[in-house]
């Protein structure tokens, strides 16, 4: 039977395919083409075909290590702050749950730039250090433009991204599972370790990915709170495209960056899938 009209499935997937092509395939293709090109004498892109830009990346590992170091540390600290908070809101807060969630989320309706800028005043010597000096706690505390400030900026800006998936996981957790664990002789800590934590692990992994990936592309925090003394991939990219106007090298770095994040994402989702082991797979006896 001749096909006079496209099958319904072809028609219905067309927008998705178009979206994918326009927003994924095309930009990545452009990115790759530029990354194997040559920088023009006045900057920008001047065609050509070479893998030199990728080889050059080997000489520019510092921002990559720096980014990995700070994003892993920042993600870990964010997790340590977010988990107890999410636990409290999901399990203990009762009727105040919505209010607390709103308190966590509402500040993020303000631009990240403004919020982060505000911290420069809080951490500057007229801010928190001045208060502590007045109280006689510490004499000369320097917070702004330190690694501490960067980690603080990460925790502050990315807390909701970590908190919400964990909150959802804990919220969905049937309270009778914790009750059952205690009933069967496990104390609070043992219950947390054996029941609550493993069952919220998919939320933890999801939250970590949601924080880690954008933090790796972070530009503002190292500039505003790190005083430009810590150099992230995002800063390297900005400099390559604007100050150096070396588009091919910038494209190569961006490409490597995308690959790195894709790898992290794949590993992360695989771990999450395993952890949510509650899944329906399993060997029939």
């Amino acid at each position: 039977m001749p096909k006079l009209i496209p099958r319904a499935s072809t028609l219905s997937t067309a927008p998705a395919v178009a979206w994918f092509v326009v927003f994924m395939v095309a930009p990545l293709t452009v990115l790759f083409v530029v990354s194997v090109g040559v920088r023009g004498p006045d900057g920008g892109y001047a065609g050509g075909f070479t893998f030199d830009n990728y080889l050059e990346l080997g000489n520019r590992l510092a921002p990559i290590w720096n980014t990995l170091k700070f994003s892993l540390l920042g993600t870990a600290v964010t997790l340590l702050v977010a988990y107890p908070l999410a636990y409290y809101i999901a399990v203990k807060a009762g009727r105040r749950k919505l209010v607390l969630l709103a308190l966590v989320i509402v500040p993020f309706w303000t631009s990240m730039l403004i919020r982060t800028y505000a911290w420069t005043f809080l951490l500057g010597s007229n801010g928190l250090p001045a208060v502590l000096r007045e109280w006689g706690v510490v004499d000369d505390l320097r917070l702004l433009n330190t690694p501490f400030a960067i980690v603080l900026g990460i925790v502050y800006n990315y807390l909701p991204l970590m908190l919400l998936p964990i909150y959802v996981a804990l919220e969905r957790l049937d309270p009778s599972l914790r009750a059952a664990s205690k009933d069967l002789g496990a104390g609070r800590l043992a219950t947390f370790r054996q029941v609550t934590l493993p069952l919220s692990a998919p939320g933890v992994v999801g939250g970590c990915l949601l924080v880690l990936i954008p933090v790796m592309g972070e530009y503002l925090i190292p500039v505003l709170l790190g005083g430009g003394r810590s150099y992230f991939l995002g800063n390297a990219l900005a400099d390559l495209f604007l100050q150096s106007r070396n588009w091919p090298l910038g494209a190569a770095l961006a490409g490597a960056f995308i690959l790195l994040m894709t790898a992290i994402l794949l590993v992360g989702t695989a771990v999450a899938r395993r952890l949510s082991g509650a899944a329906t797979t399993g060997s029939p006896a």
């Binding site: 930009p27 990545l28 452009v30 990115l31 530029v34 990240m112 730039l113 954008p214 592309g217 972070e218 530009y219 503002l220 500039v223 505003l224 995002g234 800063n235 990219l237 900005a238 495209f241 604007l242 588009w247 910038g250 494209a251 961006a254 960056f257 995308i258």
Partner: peptide
């Protein structure tokens, strides 16, 4: 500068 670089950096495929 911050706004511009910020959006550039987070766009991933900067510059295009």
């Amino acid at each position: 500068r911050l706004l511009g670089y910020g959006s550039l950096a987070s766009a991933g495929v900067a510059g295009f």
